[in-house]
Amino acid sequence: MAGAPSIEEVIEDFNVLKCMQCGVCSGSCPSGRQASLNVRRLVRKIGRDHAAICDESLWMCTTCYNCQERCPRGIAIVDVILAVRSIAAHEGLILERHRHVAYLLQEHGHAVPIDDTHKEKRMQLGLNSLPSTVHSHPDDLKDVKHLLASCGFGEITGRKE
């Protein structure tokens, strides 16, 4: 189970310490302008200490890539955030709602499975009530579950409910 990198590896692999705190990233960030993410500060924190994995603002990034496209030091900021999120997740730091989405994927092979309201909408359009995805192919769903088990995904996300 390869899993997550260490924070030292992330700092090294993505040149996090090259950050010069110029703030181009936070100036480009919709989640900073409209909400409270400060990505410049988050990058500094990641470069300094392991506590960054507990910072809830890690999960406020929409992965829009504005910052990554514009960083003058060429730091792949989104890749850094995703890598640090995975360290957090492997240490059990997963938001409740995300845990639920992970459960849906493990159960149905879809993060957003069909429900009765939308079966109805499909039929109104003349489509089959179930789409041609894993929803109509139990063997494929079995394969998906097998793969998730092979990756140890249930242990990482805490299979419950």
């Binding site: 997550a4 929409t62 995975s86 995300h98 992970a102 993060a111 998730l148 990482i156």
Partner: peptide, 10 residues
Amino acid sequence: GVFRSFDEPT
């Protein structure tokens, strides 16, 4: 956003 965040191999 969610699953790549949790575990890249998965």
